[in-house]
Design a protein around this nucleic acid. Sequence first.
DNA 1: GTCTATATACAGATAGAC
DNA 2: GTCTATCTGTATATAGAC
Lengths: 185, 185
Amino acid sequence: MSEKRNKLEQIAADSVQRSGFHNLSFRTLANEVGVKSSSVHYYFPEKAHLATALLENYIAAFTAQLDDIDSRNLSLTKKLDAFIKIFEKVIKEDKLCLCGMMAAEVSTLNKQNRILLSSYFSRAEKWISQLLINHEVELNIDIDPQVLSKTIMSGLEGAILIDRVDRGMERLKAQRILINKLLKK
Amino acid sequence: MSEKRNKLEQIAADSVQRSGFHNLSFRTLANEVGVKSSSVHYYFPEKAHLATALLENYIAAFTAQLDDIDSRNLSLTKKLDAFIKIFEKVIKEDKLCLCGMMAAEVSTLNKQNRILLSSYFSRAEKWISQLLINHEVELNIDIDPQVLSKTIMSGLEGAILIDRVDRGMERLKAQRILINKLLKK
DNA sequence: GTCTATATACAGATAGAC
DNA sequence: GTCTATCTGTATATAGAC
């Protein structure tokens, strides 16, 4: 992995999470690394290739975080809390989840990138539902784990989407409270 | 209100809900109405003015829908169901909520439009929380109505955001199930 | 292997025609 | 009052220099 390629991807990801993929230009990206925009095309022939790299990176990092939570022997409450913290970190940096942002822009993505994007959400939901199944006795509500996992994921994505509008964390906090209410004390 | 201005706004809103405000150009917009892009500037001197018009229209239509629900004498379940239907209609047309889309693009909006955007979400949340307070006895969970209203709104926005990625309605359906579980039968 | 000069198309915006 | 020719800057992408 080239060092410059790495830097380009980092800056690009940050930019996408702040203002969207369509708003990111090769020129601005190049300026930040001190090269010409045409140089960026060496690493990413088309913009869609950059999108692919960003999605793959983000999903890999996300997966690593889930694995880390899995590796620790925690209660359901603590594990869900750790999961919520992933989103908390994002909103604290005044960003959106990269995949949440790309979801808004999905109509401009090619098929391959849509599949990648879709895999992010299904992976997240699958992880949550498996967690709920493993800790079923700690649940305070009678609901299909797959249904609950979808609402948790939607709730978190929606929360940081709206919270960013007035630079707060009210919705994420509300989401945390609701989730805790659904768990046994 | 000019007829052409009206048409421009309708087409623009549709385009924004599909692919975002930044992805909308005066040129494409003009083509669809059969004029030159420069003509669009007669109605909207700057693109930010167009954003303002779209936000105002959307909020007005949304408010009208809430008033309509208020005017009917329904149970909490039915009222919330009618509220969810607003989002269902949007996702069925393969669109996003205009304000949800603009929320993703908030970093590119000017202050005035951010305030407008913010007012949409606070209005929605206020309406839900007031509804919950009015029908407190029908609630099946002990939670602050303002907190629950925020999670409902986040959940719905997030649901259609994610559902659009694989052109389904799974998350919105899940959201409906969860909300119903939180209400007394 | 890495980078740039350059091409071509398109963005928003203005000055002014009708 | 409504619309367009045109300006200036920026977009992605290519061909080719080092």
